[in-house]
């Protein structure tokens, strides 16, 4: 329990630190967003705006009232972010940032969660089989493939898939989240269309990351297969299936949970590039759009949303780890990393 309290405090602190960081980036970075917006406004208005009006514009866009003392700016900013007010977009005709990004969040989470799940399950299964057949042709071959795919960046795979399966063979759509003729909702057509559109981005991440999981699982399984308790289990006459699942499987997968925490962050980072490549309007896609349009409020909003999502994911994984591994009381799961 104590551990959960500690972890919760840590997660809250992380969110707090991230918002602080984005305040620093917007407000204090020389040549950063605040300075840039000011220069823009002065230039665009050709001097017709008063200093006060400029400050007001900046305040409404970024939630930072630049003429207040710094600490007031900071407190105001923190308060509005916590209220879910991320400012207003510059590019999307002064829409609130949350209205631009909000609808994109589920799509990004869908891509990431699905890829992570498929890659993990695929990698773990493959790795376990490799370990059971250690040294066989299957093992050597799979190790080679895993090493190779693990060395290929996901965006290279994405570009290849897009080129061949998307453009040349026209098997998959080359952009969007679902076909425009379907109506979003719980109907088969829409779900199939969403899966069809998500297939290539998901496949890219899966192909790029299952090898790492497989190699990891293989190593862990081989280690567990050499443990004394496995030998004792066999002598006790336990069925092979129970040994594979309850002994090898569980003890080999548990240490990988830590890797899962890191993978969550990695996946969300990857989503930005992938959504750009596949023109898939998720949070990352809007983030890049915003950067190119110098739409800082949207950019920072996307950053905060992604980071908070990762923090929540890591928090859930961390807390559930203590629950599935009896040894992890008191946590410190990341010590071993």
């Amino acid at each position: 329990m104590n551990y959960i309290v500690k972890r919760t405090a840590q997660a809250v602190f992380t969110v707090f630190a991230v918002i602080t960081l984005s305040f620093v980036i917007i407000r204090l970075l020389p040549g950063g967003p605040a300075d840039y917006l000011r220069a823009q406004l002065i230039q665009r208005s050709g001097g017709s705006l008063t200093q006060e009006q400029i400050n007001q514009r900046i305040a409404s866009q970024t939630n930072i009232a630049v003429d207040e003392p710094l600490y007031v700016q900071y407190v105001d900013y923190m308060a509005s972010i916590l209220r879910g007010d991320f400012g207003t977009s510059v590019w999307y005709s002064n829409e609130p940032v949350i209205a631009v990004l909000g609808p994109a969040i589920p799509w990004t989470v869908f891509l990431m969660a699905t890829s992570l799940f498929i890659a993990f399950v695929l990698g773990v299964t493959l790795g376990a089989f490799m370990a059971y057949r250690e040294g066989s042709g299957f093992d050597v071959g799979s190790t080679g493939v895993s090493l190779l795919t693990n060395s290929v960046p996901y965006y290279v795979i994405a570009l290849l898939l897009l080129t061949f399966l998307g453009y040349r063979m026209e098997l998959f759509p080359t952009g969007g989240q679902y076909a425009s003729e379907t109506t979003p909702g719980l109907n088969l057509e829409f779900v199939l269309s969403a899966l069809h559109h998500g297939a290539l981005p998901i496949l890219s991440l899966v192909l790029a990351s299952f090898g790492g999981w497989a190699l990891n699982m293989r190593g862990n399984s081989i280690r567990v297969l050499g443990e004394d308790y496995l030998r004792v289990a066999r002598l006790r006459g336990l069925p092979e299936r129970r040994i594979a699942l309850r002994y090898v499987g569980r003890n080999a997968i548990l240490p990988m949970y830590t890797g899962l925490l890191i993978a969550i962050g990695f996946m969300f980072g990857g989503s930005i590039i992938l959504e750009e490549i596949f023109a898939y309007p998720g949070v990352g896609y809007y983030m890049i759009q915003a950067i190119n349009a110098r739409d800082y409020p949207v950019m920072m909003g996307a950053f905060i949303l992604i980071t908070v999502a990762v923090t929540i994911g890591v928090f859930i994984a961390d807390v559930t780890y203590g629950w599935i591994d009896p040894r992890a009381e008191g946590g410190g799961t990341r010590e071993s990393y």
């Binding site: 984005s22 962050g265 969300f268 980072g269 983030m287 950067i291 980071t307 990762v310 890591v314």
Partner: peptide, 13 residues
Amino acid sequence: TIPGLPLIIVLAG
């Protein structure tokens, strides 16, 4: 905890 790539992108932006 802060994902690396988004942070880098934001800084670059």
